[in-house]
Design a protein around this nucleic acid. Structure first.
Lengths: 150, 150
DNA sequence: CTAACTGCAAAGGTTTTGCTTCTGG
DNA sequence: CCAGAAGCAAAACCTTTGCAGTTAG
């Protein structure tokens, strides 16, 4: 947002933006790259990485700051939270407004200046949860690592 | 927690546990490795990675599931949230109880089975915020990526 | 005794970077 | 024009894995 650099609207940049806006899957750089090559066979992975970073810095897209080993990106800049499937790592949006007041509960408990928060819900997506009704009792021991609230 | 494997208490494992409990810095595997070598000069990085993973699976330690490109670990298993400094990436605990009811607000807005949530606060640690009073106006453009609640 | 573990080194996967050439404004 | 961007390939990281030798129980 405060980056003083002038951005040029190159073909690559525009297509990245378009393809990112087309999907709701919050793709990683690599996933997006695979998709992009259908339209721009010669685009390089480095370009994708560089642009996602630059565009996130400039506020054109959103970088998902939570969890996962790979970075994911979202063309929707407006505030919203995400749900992540603990089995297949699929990420979806959760509608609803930003939870205000969350940070008030924490301010004062810490000597940090609190500027924001990152919230992500964890669970099982429809596909994985119906699949598990058949199998049962394996995998998913990451469950432990997840904070259980109920 | 539900892992059926019998864990042996090796020297390496015990020292990892001890060193992790000593610090409040939520170290990465690499940071812990550097610390460990002071006591066990021949411990291997692979062993550190393997053990952190195993111990997190078995609930002995906690793996921080939020943000950052590197994984961080915490000897404190009890539920608590974290604050992360957006400038230096330092991570501290935030006291206070788990926020119950958070997930209720989201259930129904999604077709996922919601099992938990990950919440992390973002801000500036005391060190970085006092340093910035002197300088001013540079860095910190990741601010954009952070959801602002107020 | 042996399943579990360690060290080491190699492999894997993701992300960043250097450099030269190209191009949008 | 030329600052900024692309392509390509190498490098840099972080993490995982295979294997042969070691050890806790």
């Amino acid at each position: 947002v405060s980056n003083p650099r002038r951005l040029k609207m190159t073909t690559q940049r525009q297509v990245i933006l378009e393809e990112l806006a087309k999907v709701t899957s919050h793709p990683t750089a690599g996933e997006l790259y695979d998709q992009l090559r259908k339209r721009l066979p010669h685009i390089s992975l480095g370009t994708v990485y560089r642009n996602l970073e630059i565009m996130a810095d400039s506020g054109m897209i959103q970088k998902l700051e939570t969890a996962g080993t790979q970075k994911r990106f979202d063309a929707v800049v407006a505030n919203h939270y995400h749900v992540r499937c603990m089995v297949c790592d699929r990420v979806d949006d959760v509608g609803g407004e930003t939870l205000r007041g969350l940070e008030e509960k924490i301010r004062g408990l810490s000597d940090y200046i609190i500027l924001g928060h990152r919230l992500e819900f964890v669970g099982m997506c429809p596909g994985c949860s119906s699949a598990r009704q058949l199998k049962n009792g394996n995998g998913v021991n990451q469950l432990v690592a997840v904070r259980e609230t109920d």
